[in-house]
Write a protein that binds this DNA or RNA. Structure first.
Lengths: 194, 194
DNA sequence: GTACAATGTTGATCTAGGTCAATGTTTTTT
DNA sequence: AAAAAACATTGACCTAGATCAACATTGTAC
């Protein structure tokens, strides 16, 4: 399983991984299986793990006063799961993350991250690349959220992450895009007639 | 002027700045004054500068098909200005940035950034801290954008960046929050009667 | 293979916030 | 100090998308 992560990292960084790097990675990451509907973190927890998705599908969301679920992120294979802000600062997370499919995660504890990984240059490089990419994506999502019509949002998602439409039910996609299941249903019906 | 930047950096990083660090900073950053309404970058440009606001106020925005301005970021003293994605990747920016007040910026060119700063550890540290913070903020803004009412959005902004209400006209705040000037006007009138 | 949960569709109705237009106020320019 | 921009307010009306409710379809567990 760790091979998937090694391959992923090699792809993202400029330099090569040494044998020692690979050994450390294999040492600190451990496989955790989580079943459909099981929580990875719950609102109020401090997020003490970060994880790489080897297999499965998960979602990050909040629940509002009226009980409505608001999905912020969807995760499938090769995505990193967790609340980075809580992980880094130790503040309780406002989010829930749970599995939508039975999943396999490569998990690292905060403690190992701090002591065994954070001084490895390839790891800080990876971390920076990912944080930067995340922030670029969020800027685009915020812009779309504020300026696009529901139809444009769906179309954009079909262009950026078409996989999501295969892996998640429509009502979850709708929530991720900040609209209702009825709206996305009508939009897709319409799009089919074009 | 550079002292402001030095002080700012010292505040953000763990280690001390050496004399050599300070010399390099003074060397690569230069002061640029920009007048009200003047562009810092325009949509379609490649962003070849990053800048620290010493004095003034600016905005980042797009213009949609119908001519409506959509503000994505507001900047005042001690904020960093630019399109980081365009700056890092060399892709043309989709955004405009211009001055809302006469402003003074400490500017660094991409070339100097790459060759003279990017190998200094304090600078990569600063860069990472800022990118991370940016991404945390964007996540919160996206969540608010998708789940808050107009009223809640205004209230949240008053708690997070109350300065904005002093520095920018209401119609710009409205655009930043993704609503119209009429809506924010009615909300604030209401809030006053509480 | 029957039952039950999860998912998706469709129509009727509602509403938060947008649009439009007129008017008022404050700031800037000359 | 007058004229012109820029900014803000208010009312009337409109609309994209939400809500509500009923029903259809698909998946899953026993």
């Amino acid at each position: 399983m760790i091979e998937l992560l090694i391959r992923y990292i090699k792809d993202k960084i400029d330099n090569q991984l040494t044998e020692s790097d690979v050994r450390i990675l294999s040492d600190v990451f451990y496989l955790k299986k989580i079943r459909k509907h099981q929580y990875f973190i719950q609102s109020g927890d401090v997020c003490k793990m970060a994880a790489f998705v080897v297999k499965g599908a998960l979602k990050k969301y909040t629940i509002d006063a009226s009980g409505k679920e608001n999905i912020l992120e969807l995760y499938i294979e090769n995505w990193w799961v967790g609340d980075k802000e809580s992980f880094m600062t130790g503040a309780p997370t406002p989010y829930n993350i749970d599995a939508y499919e039975d999943s396999e995660l490569l998990v690292i504890n905060k403690d190992d991250f701090t002591h065994k990984l954070s001084k490895l240059t390839f790891m800080t490089e990876l971390n920076n690349v990912l944080t930067e990419r995340q922030s670029f994506q969020l800027m685009k999502r915020l812009h779309s959220s504020q300026t696009f019509t529901a139809e444009q949002k769906v179309e954009q998602l079909q262009n950026t992450y078409p996989e999501f439409f295969q892996r998640f039910p429509q009502h979850m996609i709708a929530s991720y895009l900040g609209m209702t299941k009825e709206t996305i249903s009508r939009i897709r019906k319409n799009a089919a007639n074009k």
